[in-house]
Design a protein around this nucleic acid. Structure first.
Length: 843
DNA sequence: ACCGCCGGGTGCC
DNA sequence: ACCGCCGGGTGCC
């Protein structure tokens, strides 16, 4: 909404820096998504009329949806009443509709209905309505109702919504309300956490521990947990079970959450979620391309074989996030790589394939094209989403494109089925076509809200739902009492680095200058308004900890801090946006485009200060016109407001050597080189990753590596796909003379990136988000790793890096306990942010 | 009777 | 709808 505009313009900037996880930037999504903080204002009895004109039928106690019908020729205030299936039951009586229309259109409240009794009436039936909204809108809603002569009853708990399968208690006479049940109990963080752990750790179930031999060619190579996964997947595809929460009654099928019934048997869920936090399954596909470790080769073949043997000659669409071109084609199946400008737009070409590989980005781009996407014209036998969690934003074009694919058997591979809250699950559940959750209203009313408010039974529902469709394997999962995977140890060492006198002087002067500016913001009370600028200060300090050359124009660096944010001319606004974009592009390497989730190609910045690829954001604007909104903050988007990055200056000096500038070292580089040389002396065959967020730093490090005769390779987000594959294969190779060092940018590659050849990691600079570090470490500490993994973090003593570590530790502790609990209030979030800034700059 | 009352026609929004 | 509402027919006691 526009009301939040001023917030967005500053806060979206740090989300594009990827710092929101670290610096507790609150979720400030618009009202439509902000349903979690809704409270119940009260209830109201109304009537549904015109029943005999519609075919939709309901049961007593069944939930109904109220939907505005503004184009109704008889009454612009019309409100439709639909049953769970989406069939219209009738209309809300016009006097009441007149009161509801304004409230619903302005989104002041969400109105939900339940038909308490009289469901079989011929002409009209009662409907019990609940009004939900944000605390601050309560008065406005009550007011609007009052003006039309309606008054809400106190928020009784509506029976069918509050307990698992509970019924309305029918009194002998009059309307049947259940007595107000006790208030919902908010579970403690620990309780919630342990409940969620249980969601996934259910290996005792028969259908998940039963093993199945693979195809003959690979069967002998399967590990027990892989055989289990195979058996489970096959059973899921052939299962005749009703979907969760459905019961067979005498001659119909009954949904115990919504009390909806229908004669037609609800579709089985022929698929599920393979949730795997270490790529045990994800690796199956991706390791095809990194097939240097024997086990991975077979694991991946196994997966392909599974699809061929189980499904016969059918075509299967893989949604492939980390796109790879080199696919082994040893199994005599047709694999079509649907990617690049020469991709066939002919659906029948796709239909001829056994397997079609594509990316979310392509899928989303094609979805909007005139004439329709060929991918959406094929009826797939199977659709497999790799990195399924990337579709967790229900409003993203990618999600919409995925949800609209046709295909009966649907699989989701994801390491993190629930990223932050239950909310994230909806897209996946919807993708699996689980009735009635494909409609977000039923998901929200029956699962999400009960869970987040701690309504008794809510977690139980979620649990049984997840259990029925998910196979979960974690590093600690056990099969027959033995861990599914015994990984070598992982050790993290902190190596402190002391700056030289000279480095310290520069650092100190930049710090004092920044500190003075930030102090001024504090005294002016404009800290949050200058948040982006503050991040800029911190960025420079972080860079100075690494190498003085990373921080280019130090002396005049903060001149822009004094520019007032208001009253800018268009040219000034443009300049500011360009500056912000450059800061984003240089802050950490490989900033992602939120549309394609890949590295930014031709970056442009929106007026709301979000950075996207130019083609990506153009496509968004084109397909959503005339009211295109920013995918990240929902602010209005206009093509003419987009600002491109002026080309004259090289931002990414990826080859490092600033033309003839003489190479100098730094304390941190010295520390690294000392460690590398020692490692080469002690174990000449050991391979290591040198990781930094700054690609320019990696480029600088190339100099001493060459001087000391190291064979090294490099992987960062800016590299073309072919180069990346080459770099990885070359590094993973065990041949003599193959590189022993890989320069790796922190965020390069996806979960599937397999760098198990390395057993040492040198992290050159701490990341804002500890999870990003962990994910990076997991690229070598994963299936296939033969050695203990030692990670060395270089941290400059008495610097912003040390302060970052402190906050990281705090975050880690928080993350360990927090899950789906109530969101902190905006003021709490801001206070945390302010405290973190103070801690970072020693104020 | 510019009323009341009767009884038939009729029926969402 | 075994209702409400509408509008035409009708009109002392």
């Amino acid at each position: 909404g526009e009301r939040n505009y001023s917030c967005f313009s500053s806060s979206d900037f740090y989300s594009s820096l990827g710092l929101e996880d670290f610096l507790s930037v609150g979720d400030i999504s618009g009202t439509e998504e902000d349903t979690d903080s809704a409270i119940l204002y009260g209830t109201l009895r109304g009537s549904v009329v015109g029943l005999r004109y519609y075919t939709g039928i309901v049961n007593n106690n069944e939930m109904v949806a109220l939907q505005r019908d503004p184009n109704n020729p008889y009454d612009k205030n019309a409100v439709r009443v639909n049953n769970v299936n989406g069939d219209q039951v009738g209309h809300i009586k016009k006097e009441l509709a007149a009161a509801l229309a304004g409230i619903m259109d302005s989104k002041l409240a969400v109105v939900e209905g339940v038909v308490p009794y009289g469901a079989k009436n011929v002409f009209t039936m009662p409907v019990q309505m609940s009004f939900w909204g944000r605390e601050e809108n309560r008065e406005a809603v009550l007011d609007q109702l009052k003006r039309h002569g309606f008054k809400l009853s106190p928020p009784l708990k509506v029976g069918s919504e509050s307990r698992f399968g509970s019924k309305w208690i029918s009194g002998r006479a009059g309307p049947s309300y259940s007595a107000p049940v006790h208030a919902a109990v908010q579970l403690t963080t620990e309780q919630l956490k342990s409940e969620f752990d249980k969601l996934f750790e259910d290996l005792k179930e028969d259908d998940k521990t039963c093993e199945m031999e693979g195809a003959e060619t690979v069967g002998t190579l399967l590990l027990p947990h892989q055989k289990q996964a195979l058996a489970w997947m096959v059973s899921r595809e052939n299962s005749n079970d009703l979907p969760p929460f459905w019961e067979e009654r005498s001659d119909f099928y009954y949904n115990i959450l919504t009390n909806f019934a229908e004669k037609k048997r609800p579709e089985n869920i022929r698929g599920g979620i393979l949730a795997d936090d270490m790529g045990l399954v994800i690796i199956l596909i991706q390791s095809l391309n990194f097939c240097l470790c024997r086990m991975c080769v077979h694991v991946s073949y196994w997966f392909i074989i599974w699809f061929i043997l189980i499904c016969g000659k059918y075509y299967t669409l893989f949604c492939y996030d980390q796109f790879e071109q080199h696919i082994h084609q040893d199994f005599n199946v047709n694999i079509y790589v649907y990617y690049g400008s020469d991709r066939s737009k002919d659906p029948s070409v796709l239909s001829e394939q056994d397997i079609v590989l594509t990316t979310y980005n392509i899928l989303a781009t094609d979805y909007g094209i005139r004439g329709g996407s060929p991918l959406h014209k094929v009826k797939w036998l199977r659709i497999v989403l790799d990195e399924g969690h990337t579709i967790r934003n229900p409003n993203a074009q990618q999600t919409k494109a995925v949800l609209n694919l046709e295909g009966q058997r649907r699989w989701v591979l994801t390491g993190t089925p629930i990223q932050n809250s239950v909310k994230d699950l909806w897209s996946l559940i919807s993708f699996l076509k689980m009735k009635p959750f494909t409609d977000r209203e039923w998901w929200h009313r029956t699962i999400q809200r009960p869970v987040t408010t701690g309504t008794p039974g809510g977690l139980g529902r979620l649990q049984s739902l997840i259990r029925s469709i998910t196979l979960r394997r974690t590093k600690t999962s056990k099969v027959k009492g033995k861990p599914v995977l015994e990984l070598p140890e992982r050790k993290v060492l902190i190596q402190h680095v002391t700056l030289t006198e000279e480095e310290r002087q520069v650092y100190q002067s930049v710090k004092e200058e920044g500190k003075a500016a930030i102090s001024r913001f504090f005294s002016e009370g404009t800290v949050l308004a200058h948040y982006a600028d503050i991040l800029g200060v911190l960025l420079r300090l972080r860079q100075l900890c690494c190498h003085p050359h990373l921080c280019v124009n130090t002396s005049s660096s903060f001149s822009y801090l004094s520019v007032s944010a208001d009253n800018k001319t268009p040219e000034e606004l443009r300049e500011t946006l360009v500056k912000k974009m450059k800061l984003v592009l240089s802050s950490g390497s490989d900033e992602e485009c939120a549309v394609c989730l890949e590295s930014l190609t031709v970056p442009v910045i929106t007026r709301c200060a979000h950075v996207f690829c130019k083609p990506c954001i153009f496509e968004v604007i084109r397909s959503e016109q005339p009211n295109a909104k920013c995918p990240l903050c929902r602010n209005k988007l206009r093509v003419e407001h987009l600002v491109e990055c002026p080309p004259e200056e090289e931002i990414d000096s990826s080859n490092g050597k600033k033309s003839d500038q003489e190479w100098i070292s730094s304390s941190k580089v010295n520390a690294l080189m000392h460690a590398l040389i020692e490692l080469r002396r002690d174990s000449p065959n050991a391979k290591c990753l040198v990781v930094s967020q700054f690609t320019t730093f990696l480029s600088l490090i190339e100099n001493p590596l060459k001087e000391s005769g190291f064979a090294f390779t490099r992987l960062d987000g800016s590299m073309a796909q072919k180069k990346r594959v080459e770099a990885i294969q070359c590094f993973q190779s065990s041949q003599a003379g193959s590189p022993t060092v890989m320069l790796l940018s922190l965020k390069a590659g996806g979960v599937g990136l397999n760098l198990t050849a390395a057993s040492r990691v040198f992290l050159m600079d701490p990341a804002w988000n500890p999870a990003a570090e962990d994910q990076c470490f997991d690229r070598c500490h994963r299936l296939g790793q033969k050695h203990d993994v030692v990670i060395t973090k270089f941290i400059v003593k008495d610097s912003v890096e040390e302060n970052m570590m402190k906050i990281q530790n705090k975050k880690r502790k928080l993350a360990a306990g927090a899950f789906a609990t109530k969101k902190p209030s905006a003021s709490e979030v801001n206070q945390t942010k302010i405290n973190e800034i103070k801690a970072l700059i020693d104020l």
